[in-house]
Amino acid sequence: MCGIIGKNMGMTSIFLDNGENVPCTIIYSPPCYVVQVKTIENDGYFSIQLGVDEKKIVKTTKSLVGHFKKAGISPKRKLLEFRSESTPLFKAGSIIKVDLFKEGELVDVKGISKGKGFQGVVKRHNFSGVGESSHGQHNRLRAPGSIGAGSDPSRVFKGKKMAGRMGYKSVTIKNIKILKLDIHQYFIILKGSVPGNKNSYLMIKKKKWNSKF
């Protein structure tokens, strides 16, 4: 499986040929450079490492400068790895552009979801709260309630749904359709929404099979 690195530019809506208005996400994906090709002999698995967006040498560690120099390219700001089940067809230093895809194709998009911070059980796990505000329950509307028995087992089981940090996790949305493709300005318009904030990086993965549409 191969793909490219894109940047979430936000959402809008477009009209299709049949007059339907659909929500979509605009992805900007400049040319991605192959920084490293991993093989089973050297690394234990097949993959390619892609880099995108220029980065100043003075802001790059010496080890990474040597890593990029080995591939014959300048330092990149973002590095992401795409695994493969067979020997990759690309070599270090080659360029991958948006013409890797075509309109109507289905892709998988992976990114980091929006961080919500520390949230309670109502927002985090869709709890309904303990009860109504009548009969003296003035501060129990969004409380979690009982979290376990006291005597036996005298502890709280691991994995109990409670308040905690919400969001900022790796999320993959599968089978997103490519509505439009601009190979000259490096834009991809995907149907629906994708994980992450504006200007966040995304992995747009090419599937083994193409869409029938």
Rank of each mutant, 00 (worst) to 15 (best):
E81Y: 03
V109Y: 12
K76I: 05
A92C: 04
G72V: 15
D99R: 14
V107S: 07
K91A: 13
V98G: 07
A92V: 08
G93P: 04
S84R: 10
S84H: 09
E103P: 11
I95W: 05
P75M: 09
V98R: 09
T87D: 03
L80I: 13
S94W: 01
K110H: 09
R83A: 04
F90W: 14
G93A: 01
L89M: 08
L106I: 01
V109L: 03
S86R: 10
S94V: 01
L89H: 02
K78T: 14
E85H: 03
P75G: 07
S94K: 08
I73V: 15
G111C: 10
R83T: 08
F90V: 15
R77L: 03
E103H: 01
I73R: 00
L80K: 06
E81Q: 10
V107D: 01
L89K: 06
L100W: 10
K97H: 04
L79G: 00
I96G: 09
V109R: 08
S74T: 14
I96D: 07
L80N: 05
R83L: 03
K97T: 14
E85F: 02
K110N: 08
A92E: 09
I95G: 02
F82D: 14
L80D: 05
K76T: 07
G111L: 03
K97Q: 13
K76D: 01
G104N: 13
K78W: 00
G111E: 01
I95R: 08
I73P: 02
G104F: 06
E81M: 11
L100H: 12
F82S: 11
F101S: 14
K78A: 00
V107F: 01
K76E: 04
K76G: 02
L80V: 08
I95T: 06
K102Q: 14
L89Q: 06
K76R: 08
K76P: 01
L79D: 00
S86K: 13
T87F: 12
S74G: 02
K110A: 14
R83S: 13
K76S: 13
E103Q: 15
K110L: 13
G104M: 07
P75K: 10
G72D: 14
I96K: 04
S86T: 09
S94T: 12
K102I: 09
S86Q: 13
V107A: 07
D108P: 04
V109W: 10
S86C: 12
K91N: 11
L106P: 01
E105Y: 03
G111S: 08
E103T: 15
K78M: 02
F90Y: 15
K110E: 15
A92D: 06
E105S: 14
G72F: 10
G104L: 13
R77I: 00
S74Y: 08
K97R: 13
S84E: 12
D108N: 15
K78P: 00
D99A: 10
F90N: 06
D99T: 12
E85M: 15
A92N: 04
G72M: 05
L80M: 11
I95M: 03
S74F: 04
I95H: 02
L80P: 00
P88D: 07
